[in-house]
Computed example of a mutant assay.
Amino acid sequence: MPSIYVKPRLRDAKKPDQGVLLVRRESDGKPIPAEGALVEHTPYIRRRLRDGDLVRATAPAKTSRAKTAAKDANAGEKEA
């Protein structure tokens, strides 16, 4: 089954400091974190999306350790 990246919606759009809704995963019952998560596109998730409890989001960009290490090494050479 395909996967999608989702986030729980804010409790109140006018008061973002109140946090997000608690939406649990269907598979293990653990809550979906406020940062979002990759979940299977099941009927349960489609219902949560339709009801507005979850929103589609773009997954954060993945940075490889090799790229990060290369940037750190280049930064060190420029300083010297």
Rank of each mutant, 00 (worst) to 15 (best):
R46M: 08
G19M: 13
P2L: 06
P8N: 01
A80Q: 08
T42R: 06
E79S: 08
L49P: 01
R24D: 12
K7E: 03
Y5F: 15
E77N: 04
E35A: 15
A69P: 08
I32R: 00
L54P: 02
D12G: 05
G76P: 03
V6L: 01
K62C: 07
D12F: 07
S64D: 13
A75M: 09
N74Q: 07
T42C: 05
E40W: 06
D28I: 08
V6M: 01
A70E: 15
V55D: 09
S3R: 10
T42L: 05
R48S: 07
Y44A: 07
V39F: 02
A57K: 00
A80E: 09
T68E: 14
P43R: 06
V6Y: 00
K14W: 05
R11N: 09
A61T: 09
Y44M: 02
L54N: 01
L21H: 15
Y5E: 02
E40C: 06
K30V: 14
P31Y: 14
A61V: 12
A70L: 11
P33K: 10
P43Q: 04
R56F: 02
V20K: 14
E77C: 03
P33V: 12
R48C: 08
V55H: 04
K78A: 15
S27F: 14
K15Q: 09
L22G: 11
H41E: 10
L22K: 12
K62R: 13
S64N: 12
S64Y: 08
A13W: 03
D51N: 14
K7L: 00
V39C: 03
N74V: 03
K7Q: 12
K14M: 06
A75G: 08
T42S: 15
A75N: 14
G29D: 14
D72W: 03
A70V: 06
R11P: 07
A37K: 09
P43F: 02
A59V: 06
R48N: 11
L54D: 01
S3P: 02
M1L: 13
L22Q: 10
V39Q: 02
V55Y: 08
G52W: 00
A59M: 11
A59I: 05
S27G: 10
R46G: 01
R50W: 11
S3V: 10
I4L: 01
D28M: 07
P31S: 15
K7A: 01
S3E: 14
R24Y: 14
D53R: 12
K67T: 10
D28P: 04
K78M: 11
P2T: 08
Y44E: 01
Y44W: 12
R25L: 13
P31A: 15
